[in-house]
């Protein structure tokens, strides 16, 4: 059987134990402006970032950005734009023609413009990928500087499915020309409130 043979071969061939290094996180600390760095990196990775004064304005803002979206799934209670409602029971294949999804993000990472989103923020896993466009609502206070900090923030989560998402889907597979909009969402807008 593969398992025993592999484990035996490893035991025989591995070197003697090398300890795990202690990681000194101070080595990565920089005095950065979290919000400004985050905004800069979101733009760098092809995302759009908009800061709103009040959450009550999100619907008009989203309508301005996506005037043609008609099949909309909203997973946030502050928006009334949703035209399709989904639950854990929805067949993911029914989401094929969704124009726009609006979801909450949990926190942003300044060093790379990524936002952590998880199954808690959307009932069907494929939603943020299959939707033509994606809007993430993010509390502007919820930013951390780098991924080391980020993993501390998610260390206690209920582990099911979650991801760091950084900008819209993209590819450079044809002669290294960057094209925004590959198999996942064509655009990503982060609305900071």
């Amino acid at each position: 059987m593969g398992r025993d043979a592999i484990l035996k071969a490893i035991q025989k061939n591995k070197p003697s134990l090398i300890p795990l290094p202690e990681i000194n996180l101070d080595a990565f600390e920089e005095p950065i402006d979290l919000l400004e760095t985050f905004k800069e990196k979101v733009a760098l990775v092809g995302g759009r970032i908009i800061a709103l004064d009040a959450i009550k304005n999100i619907d008009s803002e989203i309508q301005k950005l996506y005037p043609n979206a008609s099949k909309i799934i909203s997973c946030i209670k502050e928006s009334n734009l949703g035209t399709i409602s989904i639950s854990e029971k929805t067949n993911p294949h029914e989401l094929e023609a969704v124009d726009l999804a609006i979801i909450n993000g949990e926190f942003g990472v300044a060093e790379n413009g990524a936002v952590w989103i998880s199954e808690d923020n959307f009932p069907i896993r494929v939603l943020p990928f299959i939707s033509n466009d994606l809007v993430i609502i993010l509390n502007k206070e919820k930013l951390c500087s780098n991924l080391h900090e980020a993993y501390k923030l998610i260390s206690e989560r209920n582990r099911t499915f979650g991801l760091f998402i950084s900008g819209p889907s993209k590819t450079a597979d044809i002669e290294q020309c960057l094209v925004i909009g590959a198999q996942g969402a064509m655009s990503l807008t982060i609305i900071l409130v």
Binding site: V109, A114, R159, G162, L163, S166
Partner: peptide
């Protein structure tokens, strides 16, 4: 790039 667009963490299968 500072990170790939998607870094997906799979821990449990969906229902």
């Amino acid at each position: 790039q500072p990170i790939t667009t998607y870094s997906s963490h799979f821990n449990k299968p969906a229902e």
